[in-house]
């Protein structure tokens, strides 16, 4: 009987303990400014481009104090789609007060989830972030037009993904963060400047280039200090 009381007390404590909310806001910058979708900007001075679509998966969010993981979000899969403003922020309830000095997450979807069959919510294949001709999630998708692209209607399409070696494009990112409101900024300039649009305007399968570009993107996530 005593055991049950202890259990009940634990359950009560569980619900009484102080909940905390951590909000993560995502922004994407082009030429130092928030991306204006479908509007033409100058890239590398000599050519122009416009971004029509930008979507990526953020998964397995954890908060750390030093090397210790103080909180892991369960079922942590978020599709960030800049065309749908509601998806560009994540609110995490921690159920208790936590103190942390860094945040860690994946850009992309882990290999186990990639082989787990049909999944729902943000992982539902209706979101257009799952390859159909070959199984696997698209971790990062950017589409648009570039004046230098020699594709039909000067388009470019970068669908980065792949979960199997040697083309596993999943990236782990860890950044210093202490606030309850975290502004995560992706600067897409280095990514776009690294691409020669005249001979590389499409990536739509797991390749070495997809892995390299994913690594470059991962390096360009930063936490912007709150003003």
């Amino acid at each position: 009987m005593k055991k049950y009381y202890i259990f009940l007390v634990l359950v009560l404590l569980h619900f009484l303990s102080v909940a905390q909310r951590v909000n993560i806001y995502f922004n994407a910058l082009l030429n130092g400014k928030e991306i204006q979708f479908d509007s033409i900007v100058i890239n590398n001075e000599k050519d122009t481009l416009q971004i029509n679509q930008l979507k990526f998966y953020i998964s397995n969010i954890q908060f750390l104090k030093g090397d210790e993981i103080v909180f892991t979000e369960l079922n942590s899969y978020h599709l960030i789609d800049f065309e749908m403003p509601a998806t560009t922020s994540i609110s995490i309830k921690t159920f208790r007060s936590i103190s942390y000095n860094s945040i860690r997450f994946y850009l992309g979807i882990d290999s186990l989830t990639n082989v787990s069959g049909a999944l729902g919510g943000d992982l539902d294949p209706t979101h257009g972030m799952y390859w159909t001709w070959q199984s696997g999630y698209i971790n990062f998708k950017m589409e648009g037009q570039a004046s230098k692209s020699e594709a039909a209607s000067t388009e470019f399409q970068f669908h980065l993904g792949g979960y199997q070696v040697p083309f596993n494009s999943l990236q782990q990112i860890q950044l210093n963060a202490t606030d309850e409101n975290i502004n995560l900024v992706l600067n897409v300039d280095p990514f776009l400047h690294s691409i020669d649009f005249s001979n590389n305007h499409h990536i739509m399968s797991p390749t070495k280039k997809a892995v390299e570009l994913s690594e470059l993107l991962a390096k360009n996530f930063k936490v912007r200090k709150n003003e």
Partner: peptide, 16 residues
């Protein structure tokens, strides 16, 4: 062997 799980198989013909 492009498809890794029976659940995802139907996506290929639906989309092709």
């Amino acid at each position: 062997g492009a498809i890794n799980n029976l659940d995802m198989q139907a996506l290929a013909p639906i989309t092709h």
